[in-house]
Write a protein that binds this DNA or RNA. Structure first.
Length: 303
DNA sequence: GGCACACGTCTTGACGAGGG
DNA sequence: CCCTCGTCAAGACGTGTGCC
């Protein structure tokens, strides 16, 4: 089978150097598992015990490289196996993590109950738009493109051929967000996620109703248009400072969400992480490197 | 061949002056 | 009070290169 073509089909813009690295790595892995040089098919990746055994001898950094090829190859071929390896990759990322968060950012890593408190204050103040936005960010890890969401009825959404904007699609039952214009869109393309939280859905519908047919979910009152990323960032900063005394941003809110996640076990946590990464349009590795931090505790070390 | 970091690029954030 | 705008700094991100 033509490994090179398969890689290229998944990653059309891959550079020659990386491609070379990918092929040599996968070749070596194949040899180690099957004893043969010629790669017939990807079935050898199913022999996970052997694969793991081979990888276990490598350093964390090198393992990262191998997971890169493996996941690329499995991406369109075997979803289940892909997920298994993805878990391993994430575990490896954790083991390999070394970045540390700055102190100012640590301060922003507040407890979810404080965030909730801020939310209810804003809601009480009648700042519905701000409330909806901040609540939405608590549930879904969007970036500043959230300010540009357009409200579109499901029927109309289906008619849009060239989906280039960011939409909040409203059906009679379901609602979902479809984003096409955001920081990493060239890599992740069109991303869709359902709005599933029942209580929030209700609030959202009521809010939309109050907009009287307006198509911008969030409005810059001065310009009368959707909010640009900069305007969104500015507004979030301003309003959170006012109601929580901390300037929060889409990323600091996401960090709060991740650090407050309570699951039963590592699997739940990993699943959550993968789903959040998918929605945000971020590789789990990046999440681990930049977003996951222990909550500030009065550690003896820094006393 | 193994390994991990650095680079380039783009986005976001902080800050403060200033305007309606 | 709410927001804009300009500037500069920092953060986020993925790729692939260069060292051992």
């Amino acid at each position: 089978m033509n490994i090179v073509e398969l890689i290229k089909s998944v990653k059309p813009t891959i550079s020659d150097g990386t491609l070379k690295g990918y092929t040599t790595n996968i070749g070596k892995l194949h040899k180690a598992v099957t004893g043969k040089s010629e790669i017939q098919d990807l079935d050898f990746l199913k022999q996970k015990v052997k694969v793991d055994e081979y990888l276990s001898k490598l350093s964390k950094g090198t393992k990262t490289n191998y997971y890169g090829v493996i996941l690329t190859l499995l991406k369109t071929k075997d979803e289940e196996l892909y997920k298994l390896y993805e878990k391993d990759k994430i575990a490896n990322n954790f083991a390999n993590k070394k970045k540390v968060m700055s102190d100012t950012n640590k301060e922003k890593l507040i407890d979810m109950k404080d965030y909730d408190q801020m939310l209810s204050k804003i809601k009480k103040a009648g700042l519905t738009q701000d409330y909806i936005m901040l609540r939405m960010l608590q549930l879904y890890p969007y970036r500043n493109e959230i300010g540009s969401l357009k409200i579109v009825p499901l029927k109309e959404f289906k008619k849009i051929k060239d989906k280039t904007d960011n939409y909040l699609v409203v059906g009679s039952k379901k609602m979902f967000v479809n984003r096409n214009k955001y920081k990493t869109d060239k890599i992740y393309g069109s991303i869709t996620n359902d709005i599933t939280d029942k209580k929030f859905k209700k609030e959202l519908r009521a809010y939309i109703k109050s907009l009287d047919g307006r198509t911008e979910l969030f409005l810059n009152k001065l310009t009368g248009k959707s909010m640009t990323p900069a305007e969104t960032s500015n507004r979030l900063s301003y309003i959170t400072k006012k109601y929580s005394d901390l300037k929060l941003s889409t990323s600091s809110i996401f960090k709060i969400v991740l650090s407050n996640f309570k699951g039963d076990d590592m699997k739940e946590y990993t699943d959550f992480l993968v789903e959040m990464g998918r929605i945000r349009g971020t590789d789990p590795k990046t999440l681990i490197d930049y977003y996951i931090h222990k909550k500030k505790d009065s550690n003896v070390d820094d006393a």
